[in-house]
Amino acid sequence: MSIQHFRVALIPFFAAFCLPVFAHPETLVKVKDAEDQLGARVGYIELDLNSGKILESFRPEERFPMMSTFKVLLCGAVLSRVDAGQEQLGRRIHYSQNDLVEYSPVTEKHLTDGMTVRELCSAAITMSDNTAANLLLTTIGGPKELTAFLHNMGDHVTRLDRWEPELNEAIPNDERDTTMPAAMATTLRKLLTGELLTLASRQQLIDWMEADKVAGPLLRSALPAGWFIADKSGAGERGSRGIIAALGPDGKPSRIVVIYTTGSQATMDERNRQIAEIGASLIKHW
């Protein structure tokens, strides 16, 4: 067993022997301040990774656009098919120029040779490549099948209805392509620590998230040296922004954090800054 596999296998073990965790309302004060600064709703939840206990939450059962955070769930569904012998990570998928959609920095470079399922998941999570996500959605049967996968996990809230990039439209009061912070946090925890996926697939999923290259201005910008984070960000229309993450000190994750916002007129930089400040408060009061 590799060191990384050992780390993920012992996530519940280490967490069980940690000192009790206590909620700190100071972080919620910052979440509410972010709402004021952005002029928009902000949803927040913080779960203990081992027990699933909610440590703090704000608007945990209000719907927010998922945006690209759905790509972690998508690759979880792909990995479940791999575990069941219905898919192979090494299978190569070929596609054409007509398949390319807006923001496809990886797939646009491989029109000639195609990409493997493993490479597509890596591109979808680490670079948020939209064509990679659409190609992977095709392998599982489309958005409705991802929703069905989530329902089978016990998540009857999260739903995907459309493809990239239309799913980022974020129309107010439109339930399409949305989740709730509580539902997303619980589902992410199941994917990373539950028995739904094999140990190898859980490790692969967290490795992809740990290698995320496009979430630097968010929670990662607030992390002290030595902290662990595996995350996936999302951005959408109407001032929408979000991030889902597993993080913790001492090089291992111990909490799940989900943050979503929508309806702001603020710039992307300002949305990023507010999420980073929430992260800084979380870490300060850990």
Rank of each mutant, 00 (worst) to 15 (best):
S201V: 04
A148K: 14
I11S: 07
T267L: 10
G234T: 00
D174E: 08
S51R: 07
Y95F: 14
G39M: 10
Y44Q: 01
A185L: 02
I229P: 00
A84C: 11
Q86C: 10
F22Y: 10
H156C: 13
A183K: 08
T178Q: 03
D207L: 12
Y103F: 09
I206R: 12
P181Q: 00
K53L: 13
Q265R: 13
C121E: 01
P253E: 06
A9V: 09
A280P: 01
I259L: 10
A132P: 00
W163E: 11
E35H: 03
A246C: 12
D207C: 10
L79G: 02
Q4E: 14
A124Y: 00
E145P: 09
E237V: 10
E61K: 13
L135E: 06
D36R: 15
L197C: 05
I54M: 11
A40H: 04
G234S: 09
D113F: 07
N134F: 03
I229N: 02
E210P: 00
D212T: 06
L146G: 03
E164T: 00
K232W: 00
S80P: 01
L160N: 07
D212N: 07
R7Q: 14
D33P: 01
L188G: 04
K284I: 11
Y44D: 01
E277C: 08
L79W: 01
S96K: 11
D177I: 01
H285C: 11
A148P: 07
I256H: 00
P65L: 03
A246P: 00
R238T: 10
L10P: 08
S254Q: 15
P12Y: 13
S221A: 13
F149Y: 10
R81Q: 10
N134V: 04
S281F: 15
M153S: 14
I278L: 10
L19V: 15
A280S: 14
A235I: 04
T139K: 08
G43W: 00
R91I: 04
A133I: 00
E61M: 14
M115F: 04
L74Q: 02
P60L: 10
V214T: 09
V106Y: 08
L167A: 08
L47V: 14
E166W: 15
S51T: 14
L199A: 12
D250L: 12
A276C: 11
S233G: 10
A77H: 10
R202E: 09
G39D: 12
D231S: 05
A185R: 00
N272H: 04
S281M: 11
T158C: 03
D155M: 01
G226M: 07
P249N: 08
F70E: 02
D113S: 11
I278Y: 01
R176H: 09
I93P: 02
R202A: 10
K109A: 14
P65D: 01
L223V: 13
L219R: 03
L282G: 03
I45A: 12
R220K: 06
D36V: 14
W163Y: 12
Q37D: 15
P20N: 13
R271H: 07
G236I: 02
W208E: 03
G142P: 02
D99C: 06
R7D: 07
Q274R: 11
G251P: 08
Q203F: 08
I256S: 01
I256W: 01
T158A: 05
F13Q: 05
K213R: 13
A211M: 10
D207M: 11
E175D: 14
V21W: 05
W208C: 03
S233A: 08
I140C: 06
L55P: 02
L218Q: 03
Q86K: 12
K109Y: 15
N50P: 14
R176E: 07
I275F: 12
H5Y: 12
F22G: 11
R189Q: 15
E169F: 12
W286H: 04
L79A: 04
T193S: 15
W227E: 01
D207F: 10
G263R: 07
P60H: 13
R81F: 10
T158V: 04
M153A: 13
I171D: 13
A222D: 09
A182Y: 14
L79V: 06
N130S: 05
T198M: 10
P105G: 04
G114V: 03
L38K: 06
L19Y: 15
P105E: 06
L191D: 00
E164P: 01
R273I: 10
T138V: 15
A280R: 13
V29M: 11
D269K: 12
G279D: 00
L73K: 01
H110S: 08
Y103Q: 04
R202H: 08
D207R: 12
L10I: 11
I125S: 03
A200P: 13
A211W: 08
K213S: 11
V82P: 01
L196Q: 15
H110P: 03
P65V: 04
H24D: 13
H151N: 13
T178I: 04
F14N: 02
N173T: 12
N98I: 14
G142W: 01
F70S: 07
V106E: 14
V8Y: 15
L137W: 04
L135C: 06
L219G: 03
D33R: 15
L47E: 06
V31K: 01
H94S: 12
A225F: 10
T112M: 10
K232F: 00
G114W: 04
S264P: 03
R255W: 01
D83H: 04
A200S: 15
I256V: 11
A40G: 14
L55C: 08
M1F: 02
L219F: 09
D269P: 09
I171R: 14
A245I: 02
T187S: 12
A133H: 01
I125R: 00
A222S: 14
V106G: 06
Q203K: 14
A245N: 01
L247T: 06
S233Y: 01
T193R: 15
H5K: 14
A276Y: 10
I243F: 05
I278T: 03
K109I: 11
A15N: 06
M1W: 01
W227P: 00
S68E: 00
F70V: 10
T126D: 07
L282V: 13
W163R: 11
D36A: 15
T131D: 01
A235T: 06
L19F: 15
I275V: 12
R189A: 13
S51C: 05
Y95S: 02
E35G: 05
Q86I: 14
N173M: 15
